[in-house]
Design a protein around this nucleic acid. Structure first.
Length: 575
RNA sequence: CGGGAUGUGGCUCAGUCUGGCUAGAGCGCUGCGUUCGGGACGCAGAAGCCGGAGGUUCGAAUCCUCUCAUCCCGACCA
């Protein structure tokens, strides 16, 4: 493509609406433009990047035996009512009625539609397993769209759904997808990590998230440097030695702690370490107030707590009024002793004794509390959030914390949707069985954004070669010079013939403008053809990622170029 | 939905508190000339009913009321 005839409106200044790097750079490089909140148009450059990602996703899905289909964006409410999600999904599901007053929605995901398809088509175990996928625009009416392509309301997603006749088959389908995902992210040239995840609202028995590592990621993940353990903090197990007998302690004693609300204040006031204090947190789960106990220096992991309670809706911290109603004391003085609420403790609290707890009375705490003796605790389980310095649950090495962007998620769904929608088949014995499902998502448009979050510098985007709209930029510094143009055209033709997508900058612009634009757009390979080099019979090169510059001879250019290109790709960890 | 902020040429912003001539700047855009290896310079231009509606006033971008939109922080998620 010749840049003089292309449409890539680059911006020198960053539009005020953009906050994160990927958003700023996508806008500045002329790849996307906003239509309205959370909804973007892909300009030629952005579309090419999106398609490059989609292409690799498609190839790997096909390789893994999945079959591509395309489902409708508009879906009837009936199906959603049948699965029970019409009432459950919330405002994120954009609903509307058509001219016949039929309730409809824009599909945020397609479990209902595929399951409906499959239940009508598949009747025998002989037809299983099957894995169907699509790459399609989804719509979720996000409460708060932000960060450009990172969290739009409209976005491109690949979603796949597997149907199996038995559990072993479902596991095989799951791991096939897991492997396919790993291949995809490797081919995209992204640093990523697959981590154990909470299966969340979609439900199901186990799941992994694929995270692109980037400092700007919204998710915190823990990874073991010594083994392959990795998990979302929401899920990461906080390991804890087995509980043994604890030494008895003196009888509980009430002590005045005027105005000492927080653990830090209480610990300082009583001159005890925070690890001797028990933090009592009141939550409201499905309308009921419950209490969670963690050690003073720890944080409660709400996801673990929610899962323990098996709460239907999200749990939330009790309001100050609710706290007072439940404990008879203002916030800061709640404690498990004498509390008439279900009390759940983190298992770490079973390891020791002689705790400091709130007294359920204003300005008072209790010393020498033995949770077993003085309080009624429903259970001691893993409730706390893992913290830096915690050991790996698998091998014991110290866990490392990193930030990541969730770009893929694989779930083993089990029977959730097949039961709700009655998707059955006849097994070998002629007996009717529910299909076992899995679902597998990849945020295609989010990958483009996360690739930039992970790979950028002051000059702009640094695209991995497999994602870059153009792998190579060929900058002709002398577009008015016939010799230079002829040479540029020759190289351009050779690169295209070799299947290397090249953007030839043949604009009548000053060199600085061309260099800046090339850097901004992130072409991994830059070739510069100018009067000076031409006179010496060379083309200048620049590896966008490393910034390394070099020269290639015009004589035998293509061979030398091929070798250099291979080294650039190698730098990306690509074959 | 709760909290905070912003709406002025295509983009980034000044002007608003302390109403007052034809509403400004930089970038971008058009034309001409000079330039030409990391976002050049000069000259000449085009381009804004100051988000919208109502009000106060002799007079409103500026003050008041309402409204719409966008962005940031929280609950949600590929």
């Amino acid at each position: 493509m010749r840049l003089s005839r292309y449409y890539a409106p680059t911006l020198k200044e960053t539009p005020a609406e953009a906050e994160v790097v990927s958003h700023k750079l996508l806008l500045r490089a002329g790849m996307i433009r906003k239509l309205t909140a959370g909804i973007y148009t892909y300009l030629p450059l952005g579309l090419k990047a999106l398609n490059n990602v989609a292409k690799i996703v498609r190839e790997e899905m096909d390789r893994a035996g999945a079959l591509e289909i395309l489902m409708p964006a508009v879906q009837p409410a009936d199906l959603w009512k049948e699965s029970g999600r019409w009432d459950f999904y919330g405002r994120e599901l954009l609903r509307f009625v058509d001219r016949h007053d039929r309730e409809s929605c824009l599909g945020p995901t397609h479990e209902e539609v595929v399951t409906d398809l499959v239940r009508h088509e598949i009747r025998s175990y002989r037809q299983l397993p099957v894995n169907l996928y699509q790459i399609q625009t989804k719509f979720r009416d996000e409460i708060r769209p932000r960060f450009g392509l990172m969290r739009g309301r409209e976005f491109v997603m690949k979603d796949a759904y597997s149907f199996d006749k038995d559990d072993a088959g479902a596991d095989a389908s799951y791991w096939a997808m897991y492997e396919a995902y790993a291949r995809i992210f490797r081919r995209l040239g992204l640093k990523f990590r697959a981590v154990a995840a909470d299966s969340g609202a979609i439900g199901g028995s186990f799941s992994h998230e694929f995270m692109v590592l980037a400092d700007t990621g919204e998710d915190t993940i823990v990874a073991c440097p010594a083994c392959d353990y990795g998990a979302n903090v929401e899920k990461a197990e906080a390991i804890c030695p087995p509980a043994g007998d604890v030494a008895p302690c003196p009888a509980a004693e009430k002590i005045a702690t005027p105005g000492q609300h927080t653990v830090e204040e209480v610990a300082a006031f009583l001159k005890v370490p925070a690890t001797s204090v028990v933090k009592t947190l009141l939550y409201v789960a499905d309308g009921k107030t419950v209490a969670a106990l963690v050690r003073g220096d720890r944080e409660l992991n709400e996801v673990k707590f929610k899962n323990l309670l098996d709460a239907k809706e999200d749990i939330r911290l009790a309001t100050p009024e609710e706290v007072t109603a439940a404990t008879g004391a203002p916030v800061g003085f709640a404690g498990p002793v004498g509390l008439s609420l279900p009390v759940y403790a983190d298992r770490e609290l079973a390891l020791a004794n002689d705790w400091v707890v709130g007294a359920n009375a204003a300005d008072a705490h209790l010393l020498h509390v033995d949770l077993g003796r003085d309080a009624k605790v429903v259970s001691f389980t893993d409730l706390r959030e893992v913290a830096p310095g915690d050991p790996c649950p698998k091998c014991g090495a110290l866990l490392e914390f990193t930030k990541g962007i969730e770009v893929g998620h694989v779930f083993k769904l089990g029977l959730k949707y097949s039961k709700a929608l009655n998707a059955t088949f006849l097994d070998e014995a002629g007996k009717e069985q529910f299909m076992i499902m899995g679902c597998y998502g990849i945020g295609v448009s989010r990958i483009v954004a996360s690739a930039i979050e992970q790979n950028h510098d002051d000059g702009g985007i640094v695209f991995p070669p497999t994602i870059a709209p153009f792998e190579a930029a060929l900058i002709n510094l002398s577009p008015k010079d016939e010799t230079a143009c002829a040479k540029a055209d020759e190289i351009y033709a050779a690169l295209n013939a070799a299947g290397i997508e090249t953007l030839l900058d043949d604009r009548d612009e000053r060199p600085g403008v061309k260099f800046k634009d090339a850097d901004l757009m992130g072409h991994p390979i830059q070739l510069t053809l100018g009067g000076k080099g031409l006179a010496r019979g060379i083309v200048e090169t620049k590896d966008r990622r490393s910034g390394e510059k070099g020269e290639l001879p015009l004589e035998g250019f293509f061979e030398a170029f091929t070798a250099w290109r291979a080294s650039v790709r190698e730098g990306w960890g690509l074959e």
